[in-house]
Amino acid sequence: MKKRTVWGKWWYKFSRNPLSVVGLCMVCAIVFVALFAPWVAPYPEHAGPYVNYGEANQPPSLPHPFGTDAFGRDILSRVFFAFRSSLLMGMVVLAIVVPVGVTLGLVAGYFKESWLDILIMRITDIFLSVPPLILALAITSVLKPNLTNAMIAVSVMWWPWYTRLVYGMATSLRNEYFVQSAELLGASKFHILFREILPNCVSTILTKMTLDMGWVILIGAALSFVGLGEQPPKPALGTMVSDGARYLPEYWWMAVFPGLAIMLIVLGFNLLGDGIGDLFSLEEA
């Protein structure tokens, strides 16, 4: 058999499902245009407070592939810049939510049936019982509506999913002989939680994180749709859809293209997440 490098082997497993590769390409393309938006976007200045009524409400054409909005701004350029805040939101939310949720889940799962377990899991249940969007809406409407507060709001409602996920794994892993061995050797709780149990949860957490990138971005778009995200004139996908919706159906491109952009980003991360999930499940087999 031909010897493959570790990466080669991973790529082989990953690429067996063509949809995973499609997902990866979509995510890479989105990240690329977001990162290099000032150079890639045809009209970078349209991402700001730019007004040109002479060019307003133009349908899709060669200079404006996605058309222009009511202020005469190029929608394609604005979509590229809107990707930035969407991705930023996804990354920041996950960066907050994953460490917090995972740590709580590990602690509650490892100390199952102790007061810590009861305390953490009941609080988790309370958060999970509130419809997520409602909670985020409530938080953002109390705070000042802007991107930072939207990220805080989504983080507050998102951590319990990770706590739940890791809790389930930790409660079964703590009974494994390797955890018992570490305990009997006198390893610290920190070692047992983060060096023995956590490494066995990483693949599941990573898969969920990739899938969640899409969902967090979708929630972020929903918040900006109702005006509780990134504030104008800065572009946000949700805001663009809601603004464009007022001009439906004549100026359909104003809402449809940002809407498609949201779909693309969510779909991309979902396909990629499925691929990563396959990768790990095949690795275990």
Partner: peptide, 8 residues
Amino acid sequence: GSSLNPRR
């Protein structure tokens, strides 16, 4: 099988 951590 389960007395050694598969990730270490």
